[in-house]
Amino acid sequence: MPTSESENSAIIFDRNAVRRHQARAAASFAEHDFLFREVAERLADRLQDIKRSFDVGISLGARGDHLRESLMGNDAISVLHEMGSNTGSPGIAFIGDEEALPVKPNSADLIVSNLALHWTNDVPGTLIQCRQALKPDGLFMAAILGGETLTELRQVLMEVEAEISGGVSPRISPFAELSDAASLLQRAGFNLPVADSDTITVTYSNVFALMHDLRGMGETNAVVTRPKYFSKRQIFLRAAERYSELFAGSDGKIPASFQVLYLTGWAPDASQQKPLRPGTASTRLADALETEEHSAGETADPENSN
C-alpha cells in the first residue's frame, strides 16, 4: 500500500518534542488557547457554509474542547472521534500520530484538524493517509500555521543572534507557504482543493509575554537542529529591545502575527464536478453572457461556423 513513505522526506521536527511540549502545556492550555479557540470558530463557520452532513468525523491533533464545541453546535456531524497526542487533553478518544494515522481506509466522512498538521515532517504522506481514510466524497479541512507566522520575532531573533554570536540558529519552526498548500492537496489526490489564509495579530506587553504564551500553547520550537541549551540571556534582552524599536505601537505594546492557512479538499468521487471534454458544451458562452458571438477569424471546422 502506498502509505507513509517517510524515508524520502526530511526530518525537520522532533515529533517527541512536539508531543512533550503539548503534554506539558495541556494542564494550563485553557489560559493560552485564544488562537485555537478563534480558529476553531472559523473552521466551524467554513463547515457550516458547506451544506452537508457527516456521519463519521475525525479530528486530528485535538487539544482542548473548542473544535468539538464549535463543530457540534450545528449538528451536521453525528459522531466526532478526536485524536490527540497526549491523554491530558479533554475529550480525546484515541492517541495517534498524524504521520502514521491509525484510521481504517474508507471509513470517515470528515477529517478536520485545528492547528496541528504544521508539526508534521511528512506533510504529503500525512495528507495521502487522510485522503485514504476518507470515504469517497469525504471532506478534509485543516487549519495550519503558515510561513508568515511570527514573522516579527523571526526577523528580530535572526538580527540579534547574528549581532551577538555571529551566527543564526533555527529558533522558530519553518511552516508551509500558502502558495504550496493547494498543490500539496492536489498531489495527495484531493479533488477541488482550496487553500486560503487569514492573519491574526495579537498584541503583547513584551517579548517575554509572547514567549510565555507560546510555551503555554505548546507551540515552542521543535526543530530537530534547534539549540538544545538555554539561549544566552543577552540575546533575549536585546531581542526584546529590538522588537519594541521595530514594531511597538504608540501604546508600547508589540504585535505578533499568526498566519493561519485553511486547506480544504474532497476525496474523489464520480459525483463531483469536473471539466467537460472540449466541444461537448450544450450552452453557448455568448448566451450565458447575453452577448452576440463574433468569430475570431479562424475556426477548426469552417463548414459549420457562422
Partner: peptide, 17 residues
C-alpha cells in the same frame, strides 16, 4: 471503549485490522 471507535481504528504501521 466506544465500539464505533473500534470500527475505524487500524494498526498505524500496517493499516491492518
Amino acid at each position: 471503549v466506544d465500539p464505533k471507535l473500534l470500527e475505524i481504528l487500524v494498526c498505524p504501521v500496517t493499516k491492518q485490522a
